[in-house]
C-alpha cells in the first residue's frame, strides 16, 4: 500500500483556532473532516498537505437541531449520524434516505457532510439534493460569518469558494412544506454514482398539479446544477408535466455539458436523464 506523506495533525478547540491554523499553514494545510476523500487524494499524491486541521474535534460541530422551519446540521456530522437521526427522519426523510445510500457503510461512518460538500467531488449525493432543497451553508472565517447556497459554495469540480481560513460550520435546510414532495434518485454501476437527480415539487392538491418544481442534477456534470428553463416546464397538471419531462430532460442535458467517459457516452447520459427525471417525479408524487 502506498504510504501517506509525512504530515502533522492539529486539533483545534474552536473554529477561530482552526481558522488561524489554516491561515498559518496556507497552501501546505488542509481540513481533515473524515478523510474518506482526503486520504485517497493524499495516497495518490493528488494533494500533498503537510498540516491537517482536524475539525471533527471542535465541540458543537456535530449537532443536528431544529429551529423554526429549518434543520441545522453541523458540518462534522457523519453521513451515518444524519441517516440515523430521528429528527432528520421525521422532518426531512428524503435527506435520511439519500444519506442511507451514500457510498458504503464504512464511508458513511467516517465521512462528514461538511467534508463532502467542501471537497466538491463531482459524484456527491448530498450536494445535488441539498441544492434542490435550497439549503444554505454557513461559514466562519477571519472576515466574519457568511451564508452561501450550495451552488455558491461549490464552484467547480473539487473546487469551493471558501476563502483562506474560512470553514464551513453548518448546513441549514428548510423543512419541506406540507405541499412539497421531494425525491432523490441515482444511477450507479460502479463505486460512485454516474447520475444523481433531485426534485422538489410543490403540489397544492395532492399531486394533481405542480405549481413549482425544482430540479438538481449531479455526477454527470462537474458540479451539481439547476436549470430554471427545465423547472419552468414542469408546471401544470401532472399530465402536462409528464408530457414535458422528455423536453425538460433535454434542457437539463444541454446545460450539463455532457461528455463521453468511462461512465458512459454523452448520448447515453442524455437518455438516462430522461429516464431518471421521470422516475424522480413519479417517486416524489407517488412515493414509489
Amino acid at each position: 500500500m502506498t504510504p501517506l506523506n509525512r504530515f502533522e495533525i492539529h486539533q483545534p478547540a474552536t473554529i477561530t483556532e482552526a481558522s488561524r491554523m489554516l491561515l498559518e499553514h496556507g497552501e501546505e494545510g488542509g481540513c481533515y473532516a473524515g478523510g474518506t476523500e482526503l486520504l485517497l487524494a493524499l495516497r495518490h499524491r493528488a494533494l500533498q498537505y503537510q498540516h491537517l486541521v482536524d475539525i471533527k474535534v471542535i465541540p458543537g460541530l456535530n449537532s443536528i437541531q431544529a429551529a423554526n422551519d429549518w434543520i441545522d446540521i453541523g458540518a462534522a456530522c457523519t453521513h451515518r449520524d444524519i441517516e440515523r437521526s430521528p429528527l432528520i427522519r421525521e422532518k426531512l426523510p428524503v435527506v435520511a434516505e439519500m444519506e442511507s445510500h451514500v457510498a458504503n457503510v464504512r464511508v458513511r461512518a467516517s465521512g462528514t457532510i461538511g467534508g463532502n460538500l467542501c471537497f466538491a467531488e463531482p459524484h456527491s449525493d448530498p450536494a445535488t439534493l441539498l441544492l434542490a432543497l435550497e439549503a444554505v451553508v454557513r461559514t466562519e472565517g477571519e472576515s466574519g460569518a457568511r451564508e452561501l447556497r450550495v451552488d455558491e459554495l461549490i464552484n467547480g469540480a473539487y473546487s469551493n469558494s471558501l476563502e483562506p481560513g474560512e470553514l464551513l460550520t453548518s448546513i441549514h435546510i428548510p423543512v419541506l412544506l406540507p405541499v412539497q414532495r421531494a425525491a432523490y434518485v441515482k444511477y450507479q454501476i460502479r463505486e460512485r454514482p454516474a447520475l444523481g437527480l433531485a426534485v422538489v415539487l410543490d403540489t397544492p392538491d395532492g399531486g394533481a398539479t405542480i405549481s413549482q418544481a425544482r430540479i438538481a442534477i449531479g455526477c454527470l456534470c462537474p458540479f451539481p446544477r439547476r436549470s430554471a428553463a427545465a423547472e419552468e416546464m414542469l408546471r401544470g397538471s401532472r399530465e402536462e408535466v409528464e408530457a414535458l419531462i422528455p423536453q425538460a430532460a433535454e434542457v437539463l442535458a444541454d446545460d450539463a455539458e455532457l461528455i463521453d467517459d468511462n461512465e458512459g457516452a454523452a448520448d447515453y447520459k442524455r437518455h438516462l436523464l430522461g429516464v431518471f427525471l421521470r422516475r424522480a417525479v413519479a417517486r416524489a408524487l407517488d412515493g414509489a
Binding site: L40, I189, R190, E191, R192, N262
Partner: peptide, 10 residues
Amino acid sequence: LTNGSLLEYR
C-alpha cells in the same frame, strides 16, 4: 490504463 483502481474498476 484509465480505470486501474477499485473506484473505477467494478
